[in-house]
Nucleic acid binder design. Structure first.
Length: 422
RNA sequence: GGAGGUGUCGCAUAGUGGCCUAGUGCGCCCGCCUGCUAAGCGGGUUGAGGUUUAAACCUCUCGCGAGUUCAAAUCUCGCCACCUCCGCCA
């Protein structure tokens, strides 16, 4: 949710932001009139309510006829107050419902356009030339099977398509990555967290996932709970309804959790292996800070993501996602994409978003500063999404015999090389 | 799943229909006093929204929501959270 004041004072800025996302601007006009209606209903209610209170004070002191007259008058007022209050509540709810459909104001710094209009900011490392090395690279699934690391057949048998078992060195690889990511994050000043992966509606709605992304969310109707698609959800709701002292910011958390995604509408896409799955584990960075600091923090989060990919010795690039491809809550998003040799493409492995005040207005997270309270800013960024990282490590580190050279950072945990099963 | 209890300002408490414009203590902030510190004295201190050039004023907020009433922190009902006990359980 954005600041209603911006809507009143500078509606053109809101229209422009909508246009940057490629969305119609009619909503802005609807919002302005809903806001006017809301405010006039407040004025009407407060007028009758004030009168009721004033007269109510006179009643205990009044006697005889005077008292009877007052009672008659206030009895009449009582109904008016109820009606005015109902009208105010309704106008308020209408406004809020519309407000919640309005995405965060896309940054003018983000590239214009849709999914394919991202800007490449940086390309780091060099993809290996397998032709020059004299062999055809195997894809992650084939490598995973040679190493005894990934079992998708049994994943499908037990749970359905887009499920998998990590087995043997595959399971060890995830645990090692988790341990490494969490300890690096702790070194950087993040508080390690293991949050719940089931959350209530407030948390899911407040982070913006019941909007355009609602179809992608698993919902346990019987219990009123949702499975999180990312620990961003419990971590944003962690401080909901709280007022954080300014001195306590930034608050940086590194959360490890499973992530569940229905992947509705991606039926034909990325069906081989574990690239696009209904469940994976992830270490996520989540930060609470001020609006002013959020832009610099966004860059820091990106820098930590890069440091992580550097440590894993993966070739990757950084893109600035176009405004039409942003999620509901973000004003700007940077993705890191690792090189996947068998796809001949860079593919997303991490993503850093600045959600400014959008989530904290919905979840009521404020900062107490010198001049009263203001909504906090929230940011999130992937540190390590397990399945895609495993894919990148296997494919980029593979050798002609099907073994995989690991990055030096993993040597203390797993040794230098993963070898095929005999 | 069953039984009972609790929910008031940052914390602790008072408040059983109108004197609540929610009192008091602690903490915190400002000032006074003051060799220093402590104590003492005076003032301030929930949050949200609205009217307004401003100053100021108004409304809402006692876990949440409905209801009764001219009037609700207070009475009634529902929900939620927490605590204790019983059952089940990794």
């Amino acid at each position: 949710m954005i600041d209603a004041r911006i809507l009143r004072d500078d509606p053109d800025a809101v229209r422009a932001a909508q246009q940057r996302r490629g969305l119609p601007t009619e909503l802005v006009d609807e919002l302005i009139s809903a806001d006017e209606q809301r405010r006039s209903s407040i004025v009407a209610f407060e007028a009758v309510r004030g009168e009721q209170k004033n007269l109510g004070k006179l009643i205990p002191k009044a006697q005889g006829d005077e008292k009877q007259q007052l009672l008659a008058r206030t009895k009449e007022l009582s109904q008016q107050v109820k009606d005015a209050e109902a009208a105010q509540t309704e106008a308020g709810e209408t406004f809020e419902r519309l407000m919640k459909t309005l995405p965060n104001l896309a940054s003018a710094d983000a590239p214009q356009g849709g999914e394919d209009d991202f800007e490449v900011l940086e390309v780091i490392g060099t993809p290996r030339d397998f032709a020059a090395e004299g062999f055809e690279p195997r894809d992650h699934l084939e490598l995973g099977q040679l190493l005894g690391a990934i079992d998708v057949e049994r994943g499908a048998k037990v749970s359905g398509s887009r499920f998998y078992f990590l087995t043997g060195v595959g399971a060890q690889l995830e645990l090692a990555l988790t341990q490494l990511a969490m300890s690096k994050a702790a070194e950087w000043g993040f508080t390690p967290m293991i949050p719940p992966a089931l959350v209530n509606e407030r948390a899911m709605e407040g982070t913006g996932f019941l909007g355009q992304a609602a179809d992608d969310v698993y919902h346990l109707e019987k219990d009123g709970l949702y499975l999180v698609g990312t620990s961003e959800v419990p971590m944003a709701a962690y401080h909901s309804d709280e007022i954080l002292p300014l001195e306590s910011l930034p608050r940086r958390y590194a959360a490890f959790s499973p992530c569940f995604r229905r992947e509705a509408g991606s039926y034909g896409k990325d069906t081989r292996g574990i690239f696009r799955v209904h469940w994976f584990d992830k270490v996520e960075m989540f930060v609470y800070t001020t609006l002013e600091e959020s832009h610099a923090e966004h860059q820091r989060i990106l820098a930590w993501e890069k440091a992580w990919l550097d440590a894993l010795e993966l070739p990757y690039r950084v893109i600035d996602v176009a405004s039409g491809d942003l999620g509901l809550s973000a004003i700007r998003k940077f993705d890191c994409e690792a090189w996947i040799p068998t796809q001949g493409k860079y593919r997303e492995v991490s993503s850093a978003s600045n959600c400014t005040e959008f989530q904290s207005r919905r979840l009521d997270i404020r900062v107490r500063g010198d001049e009263g309270t203001t909504p906090a800013a929230t940011l999130n960024g992937t540190l390590c999404a397990m399945t895609r990282t495993i894919i990148a490590i296997l494919e980029n580190g593979q050798q002609a015999d099907g073994s995989v050279r690991l990055p030096a950072a993993l040597h203390p945990l797993l040794g230098e090389v993963l070898r095929p099963l005999p």
